[in-house]
Design a protein around this nucleic acid. Structure first.
Lengths: 206, 206, 206, 206
DNA sequence: CATGAATGAGTTTTCATTCAT
DNA sequence: GATGAATGAAAACTCATTCAT
């Protein structure tokens, strides 16, 4: 059964087992890495559990030992990445509190852009395919964090607008998903234009 | 192999037989409508040819009579929609030539927004899943048309910037794909903010 | 598309996974046996993967676990048989070197006849249906081996004629494919006549 | 349902309708020609009724108007060819009566070889695929005619041997089915060797 | 923990044949 | 007679998941 952006419900809830020994932790890491590269290369649906296991140099049985379903695997992957990003955003809080919205936006641009460049599968899993329900949860958390960042700007932004920016800025990053199309402006040029556009907007008072 | 955003190539070439009788033309229309609704509900991968045929009240054989593969079906659907949008953009040419870039952007917002609201499956097929190669072709054409629109602005925009706007404005519309998430600002509010941001940007000289 | 003696080419390359456990090796053997009997009973095209699996007491998934396509299954089968025959021919080399062409032909008759009687599906797969390209490869190897046998005759045969005999003698065996037709002379009677004809021919100097 | 050399039984017996008008006769001829070329190119199973109709420039409905099933189409084709060959063999009767068996064999070689060169699909349908039952009937008739030819040789051949030759000589012609394999002696060279072999055999008293 | 064999429901696709116009 | 739309059973093949060793 293929359920890409499917809205299925009654799920298996047994969470991914946490490995106790070092060997196990390494295995889990290599499985997650294999999943990331496979999802990225083929897309969520076309990636098969068998190939993921193969890429990790593990057996299919081993894969299922740690991740009870394909969805759970994708969730784990996204969770890990989301946690890492969350940490970075958290770290920005202190650094950006009291600065201008434009400055915050700028810093956010850099943070998100760097993160996605290093973890492109994050964009895929949070924005495009996989378990819709889970993606919403993760997006909501990210939205909250980013809105928080903007909420601490000086001069202050309305809560509403902080919310909107928390949707808009990540959405700007999704532009990265359009891979090198011939004849199209480069991703960097586009991002710079968006960055400028946003700065001006915020400097004009939002 | 299920290839959502797969990068496969070698295709089956038996062309979609075009219907010659009225009955056939009606069938094709209802099949396309069923495909649109099914893709939208389930996503490209999870939508099955069987269900599409069922929704159209046709047999699976009938579906394959006119569309030799699932990909061909998606292509037909996207082609039709892209043609319609193309027509609308063409029509805008006369109406917007000589106007300000901001005004053109505004009109484009309305046109794209209206089109996508009426044909949400367009966003899915052109931006998210299906046949990557084909999507690029269709996007390239749209980019060309929109760049053309901006190129005729008065005062004039640089060709480069027109190109960038031709990527940016449609990308803004993709925001629509995030369906009603609880706690998130409404799609309309976001779009209005983006519209304002863009207008200011263009009025400040791009 | 069903391609019996079809001339198609581009193939799926996921190799037949070789079994690593005893259980798997037994499965593969029973699957090959089922395939042989099924091909023989129904012909290559009419034999279905489902029925082959059933005859082997396996599930369709098991069949595809070891043989990724119907063609690969037929190839494996033919390869195995060709290897066995190849071994027998190799063994004849020592035994026949230096003997007369007629004696070699006689021995070859016996060897081929015995082999085909024990493995009738060999004739089907090498001469009649299945993957044309592969069949040619296998036939070419057999031709080389048989020509080799004749090339060592005493008094010597020309290389050209050895080549021709290497086509002719196996072709004589194909007669076996005409199964018991009422009113027709028996296969054995025909083969004996052909054997005599060939011996005389060779004794007359080829 | 694919039934290549299948042994199916309960058949539809409505014979191919004989067209009354000239237009109809032309259509039938072009359908048969299309079938011949299609069977030859793709093999019996892989040839589709739709493609045959297309090649004849007719609609699928038209094809079924004259030939109620695919089998009936193949039968018609084979029947026609068999009838033509039968005529030629009949004509040989007078010309060869009283001549030596070797001379008759020689003449037969030429006749069969010429016929098959002109109608290669005959070999396919009588020897390889299609309706097994029907093929046996046609082969039996051919066997009878050829045995008849040899039975009138002078000095006389035994009835048994005439029967055997009636199997052997057509079988020699089947060699033509191995199409141009690289490294293999030419079909002509092989046929000449077989012809010589047979002549010697018959001259030595069979 | 590890492994890889086993499963079978589900998917895309094909094609001989029928039938309404 | 012609046509082409319609049908649906059946085929090849996939893959998430389970389980015995």
């Amino acid at each position: 059964m293929k359920m890409s952006s499917g809205k299925a419900s009654s799920e298996k809830q047994r969470a991914a087992r946490l490995p106790q020994r070092k060997r196990g932790r390494e295995r889990v890491a290599s499985l997650l890495a294999a999943a990331a590269s496979c999802f990225l290369d083929k897309g969520y649906d076309a990636a098969t559990m068998t190939e993921i296991a193969e890429r990790a140099g593990a057996s299919i049985g081993s894969l299922y030992l740690f991740f009870p379903t394909k969805q759970a695997l994708a969730r784990s992957l996204l969770s890990n990445l989301a946690d890492e990003l969350s940490g970075r955003l958290e770290a920005m809080k202190a650094a950006t509190a009291g600065r201008s919205a434009a400055a915050i936006a700028d810093a956010l641009f850099d943070a998100l852009n760097g993160f996605i460049a290093a973890n492109p599968v994050y964009s895929l899993l949070i924005d495009v395919t996989g378990d819709e329900r889970w993606r919403q949860v993760v997006r909501a958390q990210r939205r909250r964090q980013i809105a928080d960042l903007f909420a601490r700007a000086e001069p202050p932004l309305g809560a509403r607008q902080a919310q909107r920016l928390a949707v808009i800025v990540p959405h700007f990053m999704r532009i990265s998903l359009l891979q090198g199309e011939a004849g199209s402006p480069s991703r960097e040029a586009i991002l710079e234009e968006l960055r400028l556009m946003l700065r001006r907007h915020l400097e004009s008072g939002g």
